[in-house]
């Protein structure tokens, strides 16, 4: 992994992007890396387009500006593809992961992005409905993210997920979340 990895999350408020940005950062910390996670600050309205950011680094992170040239973009809601330029500033060899039923080649055709960058799609909402029984796509999206980028360790993520969930839920919910992560990891496709 390069020294600094920058992730930008696009979602609608309420889909858990801020939580996902945070949990990925916490997973990196568990591997003794340096990290930052922050929402794009503003008034919070359920359903409004929001951004969140995660930075992961082997060395201390000193910068505090917004992420303008992300290595990775995660899109939790494909209706945002119409209204937000999610590929904005993506690095040449970057990757965009989208929660959608649309095949990656079609999504790619709709985005203006570098030729070498990859587009990956997974039906994270469908997976979440199957497993967790609610359309909260953030957790399976991290599974897809890990498959594509290895930005954090899968086992470390799953163990942190269990730890966080166990504060409010039982083993059944932990298993459902783990299943959602595994399925997204398996089902994500790339173009």
């Amino acid at each position: 992994m390069q020294q600094l990895t920058e992730i930008r999350w696009h979602a609608r408020a309420g889909q858990g992007a801020v939580t996902a940005a945070k949990v990925v950062a916490e997973t990196a910390l568990a591997a003794d890396q340096y990290m930052q996670a922050m929402p794009e600050y503003g008034p919070e309205r359920m359903g409004a387009p929001i951004k969140a950011f995660t930075r992961i680094s082997k060395v201390p992170i000193e910068i505090h500006c917004n992420i303008e040239n992300p290595d990775i973009v995660v899109v939790l809601d494909d209706s945002l593809l119409e209204i937000v330029n999610v590929a904005d500033g993506l690095v040449d060899d970057g990757v965009i992961v989208v929660n959608t039923c649309t095949p990656p080649a079609e999504v790619r055709a709709r985005l203006s992005m570098p030729a070498n960058a990859r587009v990956a799609c997974v039906d994270a909402s469908g997976i979440a409905l199957d497993t967790i029984k609610r359309d909260i796509p953030n957790t399976p999206m991290v599974g897809a993210l890990i498959k594509l980028t290895g930005v954090v360790d899968m086992e470390a993520f799953k163990s942190l997920l269990a730890k966080n969930l166990s504060k409010k839920f039982g083993q059944e919910m932990i298993d459902a979340n783990w299943a959602s992560v595994d399925r997204a990891f398996e089902e994500v496709t790339v173009a």
């Binding site: 945070k22 950062a25 916490e26 910390l29 340096y34 990290m35 930052q36 996670a37 922050m38 929402p39 600050y41 201390p60 992170i61 505090h64």
Partner: peptide
């Protein structure tokens, strides 16, 4: 501490 930048970012 700087509003949002430091108050709200998760840091190590």
């Amino acid at each position: 501490l700087d509003g949002f930048i430091t108050t709200h970012s998760i840091d190590r």
